Simulated scan of single mutants.
Amino acid sequence: MDLARSLAEDEFKPSLTHLATASTGLLPLSAARAVHEAVDAAAAGTPPDIFGARDAARASFARLVGVPATRVATGSSVATFTGLVAAALPDGAEVLTADGDFSSLVNPFHVRPGLTVRTVPLERIAEHVTEATALVAVSAVQSADGRRADLAAVREAARAHGARTLVDASQAAGWDTFEAGAYDYTVAVGFKWLLAPKGTAFLTVPEEPGALSPLLAGWVAGDSPFDSCYGPVTDLAPDARRYDESPAPLVWTGAQHALALLERIGTEAVGAHDVALAERFRERLTRAGHAPVPAPGSAIVSVPGLGERAAALAEQGITVSDRAGMLRAAFHLYNTESDVDRLVAALGG
């Protein structure tokens, strides 16, 4: 048993073979217990501190992606944060995106009037950056098929042409080594590889966010929130907290404990475990005559033409996803080699 799996063994007791982390991760038992305790406390009239768990989760996420906590804002969805970035762009700005990227990343730019959105193949996105490009927005790992963007090439091309970068790390943060500080903005949901409850998301911003305006600023965006409850907020937080949404303490309680577990294990160990299982699945698929989408080094494996098998597999206690007609399997801490072998056998391999 590898290090990551041994450290996580007592945290997960799934009742089925869950291979759909790219859709939603499993909540660690320590996080589930903490949420139950918080619910009981709320029912008894002593709800958890509104900011404590959220700020602990913010700090954990910051350490996982290698930036100071002062550069991390917390909220509930990627689309909300992407919308802030879209709103900050000037009229006539060009946004460069990848074909078929996740809607929560790209759609806010399409619905924002006055922008030009140009879409190109993922593998060629860096070479399509021009002097006209104001922002490159791309997922680190593609949701549909697990392909990894060449982020180093994107970053260098953007710098060479004076463009900013927005990277969606929703399918990367938690297993892939991801340095958020290398990009202008990053976004990520918490309920997939970060193992947090749904309703948690993160935005990272530069030390000097430039034109990014805190359009959603409520009282929690104040430098001293409890002194900012009435009337205009005169003193916004001097850091990324000015972009915070009002936290839901119960979901952030779960996030605090989930991210703490990932910190204890370490992204490198998690990634080694996840990718090893994905490579085992790719090898078994190829041997059985199937052709997965090429995505070396990814924890996500997608197989064209097999998406319709997802429902039947669910009846056998194997949870995978049907995405764009493909069967998508995603491997994480609670998965083992026997899970891979069970899926291959169920597919007739």
Score class of each variant (00 low, 15 high):
337 E>G: 10
110 H>C: 11
216 L>P: 04
1 M>Q: 13
125 I>V: 15
198 K>T: 06
183 Y>K: 03
24 T>Q: 13
26 L>A: 05
332 H>T: 04
72 V>Q: 00
348 G>D: 11
349 G>E: 08
219 W>Y: 10
111 V>R: 07
174 G>M: 02
150 D>S: 10
253 T>Y: 08
277 L>V: 10
258 A>H: 03
36 H>L: 14
150 D>E: 14
210 G>M: 14
200 T>R: 05
84 L>A: 06
263 E>K: 12
239 D>S: 12
279 E>S: 04
52 G>H: 09
248 A>E: 15
206 P>W: 08
169 A>V: 08
279 E>Q: 08
339 D>E: 10
258 A>N: 04
346 A>V: 09
190 G>P: 02
320 V>S: 03
43 A>Q: 12
93 A>Y: 00
41 A>C: 04
296 P>S: 10
89 L>R: 09
235 D>P: 05
145 D>C: 04
79 A>P: 06
88 A>G: 11
246 S>C: 07
65 V>T: 15
285 L>H: 05
95 V>H: 02
322 D>P: 04
317 G>I: 10
16 L>V: 13
315 E>K: 12
222 G>L: 01
191 F>S: 08
240 A>E: 01
236 L>A: 12
266 G>S: 13
132 A>P: 08
241 R>V: 10
302 S>W: 00
89 L>G: 07
264 R>L: 14
34 A>W: 00
21 T>D: 00
188 A>N: 00
25 G>W: 00
186 T>H: 04
10 D>G: 13
47 P>V: 13
61 F>L: 11
138 V>A: 11
122 L>E: 00
53 A>S: 06
311 A>G: 09
255 A>H: 01
56 A>F: 05
17 T>N: 12
253 T>I: 09
193 W>K: 02
334 Y>E: 11
219 W>S: 01
3 L>A: 14
163 A>Q: 06
76 S>K: 13
217 A>I: 02
165 T>A: 05
41 A>K: 00
252 W>G: 00
310 A>F: 02
251 V>E: 00
50 I>L: 11
195 L>G: 01
293 V>R: 03
87 A>K: 14
182 A>F: 03
59 A>R: 15
261 L>T: 02
136 V>E: 10
36 H>K: 15
289 G>K: 12
182 A>W: 03
137 A>Q: 08
264 R>F: 12
16 L>Y: 13
157 A>D: 07
184 D>I: 11
260 A>C: 06
264 R>Q: 15
296 P>F: 06
285 L>E: 04
332 H>E: 05
308 E>V: 13
265 I>E: 03
198 K>G: 07
311 A>Y: 09
198 K>R: 05
110 H>N: 13
157 A>S: 14
100 G>L: 09
117 V>H: 05
169 A>F: 04
242 R>A: 03
335 N>I: 02
65 V>W: 02
301 V>A: 07
135 L>I: 13
291 A>K: 12
37 E>L: 11
235 D>Q: 14
337 E>S: 14
299 A>R: 07
140 A>L: 10
193 W>F: 15
276 A>I: 02
180 A>D: 01
335 N>S: 15
334 Y>M: 07
